Computed example of a mutant assay.
Amino acid sequence: MELIVLWDIDHTLIDNSEVSKEIYAAAFASLTGAAPTRPARTGGRTDRLIMRDMFVLDGLPEPEWAVVEAALARAGEERFEDLRRRGTALPGVRAILKAVSVRSGWVSSVLTGNIAANAHVKVSAFGLDALLDLAVGAYGADALQRPDLVTVARERAQRLQGVREGVPVVLVGDTPRDVEAALATGSGIIAVASGIHTAEELAAAGASEVLPDLSDTARLLQLLETYAAR
């Protein structure tokens, strides 16, 4: 049985301890010469949208995306040690990623609003990168809207890992946007209430499976196997 499992990063795999918002603010300041008037609004949105909104809210023209992405990557790299010191991998994450990584026919990667460089910073800060196939992931530079990232990840899995067309995809994430992306693309969804959204909010968004976190490895594997068998 084949399966593509796509994990969100922030508040699903790791707690970034506000380092993410510091990255956005630093990138903004490096491009404008001034701090943003308000913190970045994240909540499952892509980096392209997050940074665009920051410029709009401050009444500034948006630089070319390549320039913005480079500024984000520099800011992320500069905060690697801060992230490792202040942040943490969330409960059960290492165990479930390891268990999924050894399943025959399963591809385990990320679907995240972060640009690829900063996604790598975040998972490698806690030694999770070796448990994920990051090459087939979908990132915040790949599309404006989260549902479009599912297609990106599926195509990369087909091209790079030889995954057959039509293999089930499951998203694991902590925001209503993760749920919406799954529903919009016919993917499975396992929602986790390990971020700012409650189990009730995630269920209201349409998630049929909501867990408190990723600590129950056996339950998670059971759910994933159910999707793989479809």
Rank of each mutant, 00 (worst) to 15 (best):
M1W: 10
E2H: 13
L3I: 07
V5G: 01
V5I: 04
S20H: 14
E22R: 10
I23P: 00
A25L: 05
A27M: 10
F28W: 09
F28Y: 12
T32P: 02
A34G: 11
P39Y: 00
A40E: 03
D47L: 15
R48A: 14
V56R: 09
W65Q: 11
A66K: 15
V67G: 01
A71W: 09
A75I: 00
G76E: 06
E77A: 12
E78R: 03
D82K: 15
D82P: 08
G87A: 04
L90T: 09
R94K: 14
I96M: 00
I96F: 03
A99G: 02
R103F: 00
R103E: 08
S104R: 15
S108F: 02
T112M: 01
V123H: 10
A125V: 10
L131Q: 06
L132Y: 04
D133Q: 13
A138S: 15
G140R: 04
A141H: 06
L144K: 15
E155N: 15
Q158S: 01
R164L: 12
E165C: 06
G166A: 03
V169D: 04
V172H: 03
G173F: 00
P176H: 06
A181D: 06
A182M: 04
A184H: 01
G188M: 04
E200D: 14
A204G: 09
A204N: 01
G206H: 11
A207C: 07
A207S: 04
S208D: 12
V210K: 01
P212I: 11
S215A: 06
R219T: 13
L224G: 03
E225D: 13
Y227N: 06
